Structure formats: C-alpha cells, structure tokens
Amino acid sequence: MITRDPSAFLDAARGCAADFGPATARAAFLVAPDGFARAEQSAGDNRYMAAAGFDATRALAEHRGLHRALSACLPTVCFAGVPATPDAVFPNNVFATVAGRCLVARMRHPVRQREAARADIRGFFSDVLGYALHDLSTQPHPCELTGSMVIDRARGLGFCGLSERCDEAGARLMHEAFGLRATLMFELAPGEYHTNVVLAVLAGRAALVCADGFADPALAATIAGLYAPHALMLSAEARAAYAGNAIALGADTVWMSARAQRALGEAGRFALRAAGFRVAAVALDAVEAAGGSLRCCVGEIF
C-alpha cells in the first residue's frame, strides 16, 4: 500500500515482520568530488548549500578519507567524478538498488539528470553485477530515490517526503520499483528538499527524526513512535549540522559526519548505544558545503 494516511500506514507497518530483506547493504559505492563546485541549479531549492567558499582540494581529501573508512567496514567502490556534474558526490539520489535490480532516478535539475546517463555506473550494475536496470529517468515525474525516500529495508517500509524533488506520482513509481510493502507520503516543511536530511531509519530498529523538517511535526512524532524506544528526536541545530543524514552500515555501526556527531551530543550517542550502535564519524566539512553529508555520499548495494 501507498498512502498519505498515517493511521492506515501504521496499521500496516506494525504488522510487517523484519523479514523483507537485509537491513543494511552488502556493499557501497561513492562518486569522487572531481570538479567540486557550487551547482547553481541545485542551490535554487537546497538551503543547505553554501553560498561560497567551496574548497575542491579539501573536499577530495575528505572524500578519500570517507572511502578509506567505509572500506574497513564493507566493500566500497568509488567512481571518478565528472566536472560537468558537480553534485555527483551525492549518488544515492540518482542510483539505488534492491536485490538484482538497479534503479535510476528522474532528477529534477538538468545538471543532475546528466548523472543518470553515466554509462560507466550503469554498466557497473548491469554488466559487472548483472543487475537489471529499472530506469525512471525518462519519465516526467521527479523521484530522487533514497534522498526523497527513506527506507526501512528490514520491513519493506518507505517514508517519502514530497517536495520539488519528488512529487506524488514519482513517489508511487519508487514504491513500485523498490517493491515496498507500505509507503507513507507526506509533505516536507517549506525549504526542505530531501527526506534523508530530516529522517534516518537505522537497520530497521532505530530512527533519527527532525520534527521541524516535516510540514506536520506531529507526523514526525508518529514515525518516531514506530521505532520507540530507539527513536531520537533531533533539534533544529542538530538537523542543520546533518545529524539526521546518517546511515547504518552493518548491524552495529551508524555513520555520520564529524560535524553531525558533535551536534548529536553525548545524550544522542548514548541513545544510539542503547539501540546497539556505535557512532563512526568522518570529517566532511568541505563536502557539506555542497548541501549534503555522509548519507548522501553513500550509494547502497543490496
């Protein structure tokens, strides 16, 4: 089912066992920030993007550090960046996977639509991994994959925030493409562009929730209740520092940027420890100038 009705969604979600598939990815992929610069088109609806001060040398070094760190946790491949696609450092919005299938997004901005056409990344999934391509890039409805859709992979649940980056028709296309059991659609707060900045579901058993990122803050509390007692409500300050842009890679580790970890604070880290997670952090200050953080950098391979 796919619905805007929180009650109907919760009734369905509570009946879903954690048997939909692996809770976390078996591998990851990155795209290097070659040609790292401000993308003016994307800046039009991404309030997190810096106005100036982009440091390509620092961004490359930070991204290399992220690659090294993730490679110690799970197999992680990195594709070269392309200067004509300055947002490509955030590939999870463009490519996503389920077992045996790679989804390709319909991005809102032309500068990001170029990423979806990359033959090397498409070929890696189709020719190397043998995945079927589910190509949404040529239809008219924006649907920016795991930027717009936060997924509980263990139970097959989707949380899709609607914005200029994903309309209702795009949400339905993603729900079908991911093969989800139930998806809840909702409006993001004005100024928010992606759900994965305001919500993280961690290995199907915990959640980080930024209520001020939802048009209806009460809905954020409802979603948090689904993951109680391991749901952490984040402040506006923590959201702005990307504490909600986190990802579980493996059963016991949550990854976020060093800035996000600082904003999470000791109380937040204690709450995650209570859920069975340690926090691993990587410095990404320069990368974050582009309007995303660690989770946005990580493409998951299921």
Rank of each mutant, 00 (worst) to 15 (best):
E144Y: 14
C143W: 06
G204N: 09
A240G: 08
A215L: 03
Q139T: 11
M185N: 14
T183C: 12
T183Q: 08
C102P: 10
A221P: 01
V150K: 01
L133E: 12
G204Q: 13
A154I: 00
A119P: 08
G161C: 01
M233W: 08
R153C: 06
I121F: 00
G161Q: 09
C160G: 03
T138D: 13
A221T: 08
R118A: 04
M233A: 15
G147M: 11
A119G: 02
M174V: 02
Q113G: 11
A117F: 00
F159M: 02
D216Y: 00
G156C: 13
R239A: 11
E164F: 08
A171Q: 06
S126H: 14
R172D: 08
N196P: 02
A228V: 05
G158E: 04
A105H: 09
R101K: 13
E192A: 06
T195E: 13
A203S: 09
A200M: 08
R114E: 15
Y131I: 00
R112I: 01
H230M: 06
A228E: 12
T195I: 01
Y131L: 03
L226K: 10
E192R: 10
E115Y: 11
G170C: 06
A220V: 02
R101W: 04
G213M: 11
C160P: 05
A177T: 04
G225N: 05
G179K: 08
L145M: 07
S235M: 07
A236G: 14
P229K: 06
